[in-house]
Design a protein around this nucleic acid. Structure first.
Lengths: 194, 194
DNA sequence: AAAAACAAACCGTCAAGTCGGTTTTTATTG
DNA sequence: CAATAAAAACCGACTTGACGGTTTGTTTTT
């Protein structure tokens, strides 16, 4: 009861990674189970053995990517506290993730959820938990501010970054986005000192 | 050469409206031509007669919805100039549209475009034109500010609203979004007086 | 021996686009 | 001003290919 356990976990992780790669590369509309299997270098039979359907695969993949993002931010705020990272650096860290695989994958999933109540019901607690953890992270980031204000700044920041992620589909222009991010950093500084 | 012209335009408009309805209701993944035809109350044959494929239909539908949004904003800024509308009211107007059909439809289309280079090439000029017009609108909104700053505030605002639109998939909470919008209005006021 | 991991053939469904039609309008011409 | 040719609007059956899930079979581990 050891070898099998390890092998199973290994295969499942390979499949979840492949799922994220395919989802970002192909989009949900063109997301194909056989391509996931191929990308993970396992057979389609193996995939169906470990995940009984598409939804299960997607839900677990999204859980993984959200958890990894929050972990990264948690380390980031630790670094800020330890003076290894500035506030600007923290925002850069967020943007680096929000302009990459994470956001596009969650966007694909969000749109799917919007039209499939069951899937949405499955994901909503996950998303809420995700946001709750980020909320805590921002309160740790601004310990001197009232929790309410920290939350508010977090929500503004997250939504700005979300919007930027969306716009980046049609406008690939690093300079432009860095400019926007810098403007926002300046505004944030004003807000926390005011 | 009169009756046919009118009938043709009529049917095409019905189909474009039906396309937007279906796209918002079903999402691109579940977007079906026969449902569009049914929604528009024409036959599938009529649809294929007027639009040779899905992409053509979608591209023209998106053109329509973007143009209507810009027209609304243009009227909005006229109203601001005529003191019939406050700056807050203008932002409310934007949010009303960005939280409705407009944004969800463009989001569906953006994700499709992301994975289909031809379709993206087809849409990019449209999107750029859209943004250029909004740019002008914001420069008219803040005639006393340097154009560059107006543009910058516009881009921040648009992206914040985009992000809020995205979040609204998982968080239906009018109060919360109104709160965010109010925070942003306050920040905007600071920025334009500073 | 039985259960897990994996493999792959197979099937049913489903929708986009094609195609051969019909009907109505418009253009042409004696 | 017919008569008629051509073109446009429209209809719906059919083809075709794709893909998710099922099922049956094989190998390896427990």
């Amino acid at each position: 009861m050891k070898w099998q356990q390890r092998k199973s976990r290994e295969t499942r992780q390979k499949l979840l990674n492949a799922t994220l790669i395919c989802l970002e590369r192909d989009g949900f509309h063109s997301f194909r189970l056989d391509r996931v299997a191929h990308e993970a270098d396992v057979s389609k039979g193996a995939l169906t053995h470990h995940f009984s359907n598409k939804e299960e695969l997607l839900a677990q993949a999204i859980e993984k990517v959200l958890a990894e993002f929050v972990d990264t931010l948690e380390r980031g705020v630790d670094d800020v506290h330890a003076d290894r990272l500035s506030l600007d650096g923290f925002l850069d860290l967020m943007w680096r993730h929000m302009s990459g695989q994470l956001y596009m994958v969650t966007l694909e999933i969000a749109l799917k959820a919007r039209h499939e109540p069951d899937f949405k019901t499955l994901l909503t607690p996950q998303v809420q938990h995700f946001h709750a953890r980020i909320d805590v992270i921002w309160q740790r980031l601004f310990p001197h501010l009232p929790a309410e204000q920290a939350t508010n700044l977090m929500n503004l920041s997250m939504n700005l970054l979300r919007g930027m992620g969306t716009q980046s589909v049609f406008r690939e222009d690093t300079q432009y986005f860095n400019g926007l991010l810098n403007s926002w950093k300046a505004i944030l500084r004003q807000q926390i000192t005011a």
